[in-house]
Computed example of a mutant assay.
Amino acid sequence: MTDDENTAVDAFEGLGLTSYQAKVFIALHRLGAGTARDVADITDVPRSQVYSVAESLEEQGLLEVQQSNPIRYRPVSVDEARETLRDQFEREQDRAFEYVESVRDDAAGEETQEDIWTVRSRDRIDDRVVDLLSEADEKIVFGTRLPELVTDAIERVLAERAAAGVSVHVISRTDAIRDRLGALEGVTAEIPPFYREEEERSGRFVVVDDDGLLLSVVGDDGSETAIWSSGSLFASVLIQLIEAGDEL
């Protein structure tokens, strides 16, 4: 098969067909109509398998069978097949997510709660930081030593929350970060009172109001991993400990 045909087979598999079903369907469109032998001649589907595969495609409404000797098969039009597979995909999607929703509803009745979450990869942590900052009603403390961890989206949401009256405080030992974020109206930027010059593992930290927290570390390969919590006892207690340490 060509690369294009392999790609098409993979796509049909994503729509719910098996590899053999996809190959037979494509072969019949190439032929216009044909017997099991015709299909086997231009695919790697064994002739003995073509019959059962064609029967399954007929059940799905993707081909028609001519009762002749030998039996001949003809695919439905591309538009009809597209609609049939779309309807099938949507039905399966509904069935899958209806079950997931029922499981979620059952879990919602539980009293246990996951308070601490782990996030890996820079992009996902960027998104989580923006989400946490966007939820701030009273105060934000944002800190990092790495300019690349201050995205445009983070800068924008800090400015927006400051304009909305939220107290926004930036802490960084890096001049460029303090200059950049401290220039935003309503945002204060300071050097942390205590830090180690040789410390190279810290990523960023976010404190939102009294119950939102994110802390990240950077690996030797530059990858970032974070833990975060919001609206939990864990976050509230840890924030209190951080604030008490600042006062010592």
Rank of each mutant, 00 (worst) to 15 (best):
V237F: 04
L149K: 01
S121R: 14
L233K: 06
D152H: 01
D210T: 13
L85P: 04
A8G: 00
R104W: 00
V170R: 01
F97T: 12
S102L: 13
E64R: 09
E5Y: 03
A107D: 10
T225N: 01
R120D: 15
S167P: 00
E110K: 02
E80K: 11
F142S: 04
R120E: 15
R178Y: 04
Q240N: 12
L146F: 07
T43P: 06
R91W: 02
A96T: 15
A40L: 07
F234K: 00
V217T: 15
A54Q: 05
E185S: 15
I125M: 08
G143W: 02
I191R: 11
R173E: 14
P70S: 10
R145H: 07
V130C: 08
G212I: 04
E155M: 01
I242D: 02
S121C: 10
Q93A: 14
P70A: 09
S56P: 00
L238A: 12
G231K: 02
A162K: 03
R156I: 00
V187N: 05
L31W: 07
A226E: 09
W228C: 01
L57I: 13
A226D: 07
V78A: 13
V237R: 11
V78F: 09
S229Y: 02
V50C: 04
V217F: 01
E199L: 09
D38V: 06
E200L: 06
S77C: 07
G34H: 02
G16D: 04
S223T: 15
T7E: 15
A244I: 09
K139A: 14
G165K: 07
A40D: 09
V207Q: 04
Y20K: 10
V103K: 08
D137W: 00
L28G: 03
V217M: 05
E185G: 08
L63P: 03
A81G: 15
G182H: 01
R37F: 08
E135C: 00
D3G: 10
R91K: 12
E80F: 11
Y51C: 02
E64Q: 12
R161E: 06
D152P: 01
A11R: 07
R91H: 09
Q60D: 12
L146K: 05
L241D: 14
V141M: 09
V208I: 14
R128W: 01
P193H: 04
A153K: 11
R95Q: 15
P192H: 04
L238T: 12
R156A: 15
R37S: 15
E110F: 10
D126Y: 08
V208G: 03
L62Y: 01
Q67A: 14
V166S: 05
A11M: 10
E190N: 09
V103A: 12
R82M: 13
L146A: 08
E55F: 11
S134Y: 08
G182D: 08
R124K: 13
D44Q: 01
R120Q: 15
A108F: 06
F12T: 05
D41S: 08
D246G: 05
